[in-house]
Design a protein around this nucleic acid. Structure first.
Lengths: 328, 328
DNA sequence: TTGTTTTGTGTAACCGGTTACAGATAATAT
DNA sequence: ATATTATCTGTAACCGGTTACACAAAACAA
């Protein structure tokens, strides 16, 4: 691979001049520039990003830490981040934390050693001291955070109320909630929305809470159990995977969806359109969340002011077959 | 951030000695080493990976190019690669090529400039000169390649014959095939398997070929069309998303699955368990493919010999409700 | 006792860029 | 005509590691 010194020699100039041509700064005579460009062309010279990074302390790379890319919520998010970063000529290092603090810390350490210019974190319970110590711009994505860090989240609480209310509107009165892991903040926010709506409807009953751990299978089993013990005519699942689990449980018991039990999920992943019946859901603007996170990270990196630090994006009720029945 | 020189000063030694301690090579006196380690501890020193990379020309980073991470086949593959690379202390840069040659080339260029130690390519039709020019180890994943490059693929041809034969075995005689994009090699291999099996069964009829472009919606529309024009009692879809499309089309026409039309997909993504009825499919060992690709990339990087260059992994028929009926 | 090998450490060049600084020339102002 | 400023280019230090090489002391061999 040709180096800047090879180019300089071939063009008969110093490396400084070549560097000036490359970075389009400082003064360079037109003819000189032409010679340099020709040499670059001839040698098929590409500047070494690593050398550049070492000196400039900026790598045109960011880290993106997600719990698990194979969880269907994240691919679209990751795609959005990558798309936007690509526009700004940044490259994305993908890390799977499995929600484990230890793994997360290790990744952050490695990312810092590699001089990443910023980090987007989609994570639960990162000890905040760690993050505070970061000398790197950070954006917290999907998971609500401390006020100090820019963040992009969707309106979990409002979405949960919306979902619950929707079930009420179509006639459900025994509305169960399948809850995500207690240590995941957004799961708790969705639970709060459900609880508050149920209370204000005068329907609150804590027996109607089902633990699903954000997993299809666990949600299915827990729902089977719950349906045997309590009467239920509507289920609000904390995410779409669990909604599918609930759907399977209900169908397995020979009940009809939505006639006997209506079901609504949360997230709006493509999967909800693939079931039979298609699942109603609260759709989060997943791509937009990723894109915004990426954009505000770039702004921070470039030292530009953020006109807004916390983004709470609205969610949308998507009404499909699983809750479609005549309103009473 | 502390540098190696800070450590050296604090420990009262030269940078060379510190470097020796860090890399556990050369001779270092026990006491000296202790002093150095203490200094490292005190300063919370972490070596700068970039400086190291510049000198050693190895970055402990690899590039992973996929068509589109939000296509449900890839998250698991990516996860596998990341998991394995993580074990070997490599970091993964994720790139989405959208199957576009131009984007792919740009990524490869950037990756090279960043001194990645290797690249895993999941791509269709990269002009091979580009790859050949790579002075970086490469593994081709999922897409069959030229003999020169190590590759990991599943048995597309065999899987397609298996799927087709399965439909025959459960009694189907008018077996349609929903085909992926003609420029994608694995789509064509699956088609070949279908064709050969149909021919050997004496059932071949080219009217039974449906274009689905690997997309759910297109597959659904095309299937609706096809079902109106021809009689069909079995559908083999080139991937699972298209199988879902077919399922929706069949149900929309008021036909029963599997009684009137049996359906089988391809890939074995989690989605196939979420539909009603659950979809039979040809399951590829997705995680294993990714893991093997990562391992042979590491081997190449470390200069170890590969005991095998081309891996063709077996696929498996997963029989679920969409093809479950009494065999005749 | 002398020669050889092993152990331990430091100096300085190197990886491939960027840029502060200096010096030279050309253009413009006074 | 001289002072000032703008343009152009090169030298060398620097980013933060690694390692070839030199040298000294200790351990061992003859």
């Amino acid at each position: 691979m040709a180096t800047i010194r090879d180019v300089a020699k071939l063009a008969g100039v110093s490396v400084a001049t070549v560097s000036r041509v490359l970075n389009q700064n400082g003064y360079v005579n037109e003819d000189t520039e032409k010679r340099v460009r020709k040499a670059i062309e001839q040698l098929n010279y590409k500047p070494n990003e690593v050398a550049r990074t070492l000196f400039k302390k900026t790598s045109k790379t960011i880290g993106l830490i997600v719990p698990d890319i194979s969880n269907p919520f994240f691919p679209e998010l990751v795609r959005a981040v990558e798309d936007v970063m690509n526009i700004y000529d940044y490259t994305v290092i993908l890390c799977n934390s499995d929600e484990k603090n230890e793994k997360e810390k290790q990744y952050i350490e490695v990312l810092k050693q590699k001089y990443v210019d910023g980090i987007i974190l989609t994570t639960t319970e990162l000890a905040m001291e760690e993050v505070l110590e970061l000398d790197v711009p950070v954006v917290i994505l999907d998971r609500p955070s401390m006020p100090a860090f820019p963040s992009v989240v969707a309106d979990n609480y409002g979405g949960a109320r919306l979902a619950t209310r929707h079930l009420y509107d179509i006639g459900c009165r025994k509305i169960a909630h399948i809850q995500g892991p207690p240590h995941v903040v957004n799961a708790m926010q969705r639970f709060s929305g459900y609880r508050d709506e149920m209370q204000s409807l005068g329907l609150w009953d804590e027996n109607l809470i089902i633990q699903g751990n954000y997993q299809l299978k666990q949600a299915k089993e827990a729902t089977l159990q719950a349906l045997k013990e309590y009467q239920v005519d509507g289920i609000f699942a904390g995410n779409d995977a669990m909604a599918v689990g609930a759907l399977k449980a209900v169908q397995q018991l020979g009940l009809r969806v939505p006639e006997d039990v209506a079901i609504i999920g949360y997230d709006g992943i493509p999967l909800t359109e693939m079931t039979t019946p298609e699942l109603s859901t609260i759709s989060q603007p997943i791509y937009e969340m990723g894109a915004i996170a990426a954009r505000i990270l770039v702004k921070q990196i470039e030292g530009k002011p953020l006109e807004q630090i916390h983004y709470m994006l609205p969610v949308e009720l998507i009404e499909r077959q699983s809750t479609r029945r005549e309103k009473r």
